[in-house]
Design a protein around this nucleic acid. Structure first.
Lengths: 227, 227
DNA sequence: AGCGGTCGTTAGGGATGCGTCAAGATCGGT
DNA sequence: ACCGATCTTGACGCATCCCTAACGACCGCT
């Protein structure tokens, strides 16, 4: 299992240097040069680690961290040229996991990356199959079986929504997180989509689609999978 | 819930200085001057965080980390006078979560401690579930269960208020803070809102809404969640 | 006793959010 | 180029929630 890293920096040279190093060490590298691009890439690719430079042209670095943290728990290591202590504290308190001041040594960065990935490692080792009274969901095989045992066909988008809700079953998932993870951060207000797809999921899964029992709406906040 | 920190250093002066700082910041501090004492204290007290100096008289620092990691996942932050890069990498790869080189700034250490503790808070965080005799509040899942086990439905505004009060449970929260955080700084005088929503929360949570036991009013000051 | 201030309670109108349906638009495979 | 599956987009009715205002109760103060 290769670790996927998203590297964010506005300087193309640094980007290239880091990419070469990390690729040589066995990481799968994606890059972004702006804050918005970083958010888009995070939502689309779900990297296992983010290396973030604070000096971006479009967004403040802490704003990127805050936005990311509103729906993701991916480890974030900040790389910054600023030696100011206040920047460090701000970044860490906003949600960054580590902070390195440029120039840094490559071996140290690699060690801190290993530490960050190790820490975040596999809290998702939960049961891969979730069974209810009316259907069962196999997260590993990406299959849904009805009570009679026949397979329920889900479209890719339907599956994406169901997977997020089931992975955090019982917990409330904000519509912002759903929209960010599936359509990208720019669609945060298109709650239309969620209404449509939740209706479709209910029609396929719920015994009484009009009175949902598993796919619960929490008005104004989000949705919840109740098993 | 106060965070318990184990500070390990062979220099009694440094130990004392750190203890004073951390205690002032609300941490519960235990100290140890040797590697063996540190391991003993970890096993006995299960601290939430370990601050570890590498230059110990009896054991090598990395040995302490390895021993600790053989049975515990407690966050470890290494404090060391050694600037050698190899030490850093060794410590991090053995299982340390962070590494600060002396001398470091106290605000930075505190920020990194907050980051480390935040990360270690697993989804099944104990602090995230507040149980009383009449209901239980799951802050992570945004769920309230009544004593009979059925879910209590709260509106977004009700949740926002309850969340703030419960996060600082036991402490007095001023009406100005509640109004500022939920409706924005311009609504600081609309204490009407609070009266209405506190009444709704009491009707949903309190066994005797007319005689509140959990959602206490401190006249002229603010509100308090008493568990 | 009278009075001003703060708090609790209630109820209703307006705004917002949700479920539903259906019609284009887009994509992918034959 | 066609066709089915899937994804977007808009519109409508309906339920719910937020805000607001009004009234009464309970203090401390003059």
């Amino acid at each position: 299992m290769t670790t996927r890293v998203l590297v964010v920096d506005d300087d193309a040279h640094i980007l290239r240097a880091i990419r070469i190093h990390l690729t040589a060490c066995g990481y799968a590298v994606r890059t972004a040069q702006t804050g918005r691009a970083a958010l888009r890439a995070s939502a689309a690719e779900h990297p296992d680690l983010v290396l973030l430079d604070l000096g971006l042209p479009d967004l403040d670095g802490t704003a990127v961290i805050a936005e990311l943290r509103s729906w993701s728990t991916v480890p974030i290591i900040v790389l910054s040229a600023r030696t100011d202590g206040a920047d460090k504290i701000n970044a860490l308190d906003t949600g960054a996991d580590d902070y390195l001041t440029k120039p840094f040594s490559m071996p140290e960065l690699l060690a801190r990356m290993r530490a960050a990935v190790r820490r975040s490692g596999s809290p998702t080792d939960r049961d891969m199959v979730v069974a209810t009274m009316d259907f069962s969901i196999d997260l590993a095989a990406k299959k849904v079986l009805s009570r009679t045992g026949e397979q329920v066909h889900l479209t890719p988008t339907e599956w994406a929504i169901l997977e997020i809700l089931v992975r955090d079953r019982g917990a409330l998932v904000s519509q912002r997180r759903l929209l960010s993870e599936i359509w990208g951060p720019t669609y945060r207000t298109e709650t239309n989509y969620l209404r449509v797809y939740l209706a479709q999921l209910r029609r396929k899964l719920e015994p009484e689609p009009a009175r949902p029992r598993y796919l619960i709406t929490e008005p104004g906040m989000g949705y919840r999978f109740q098993d």
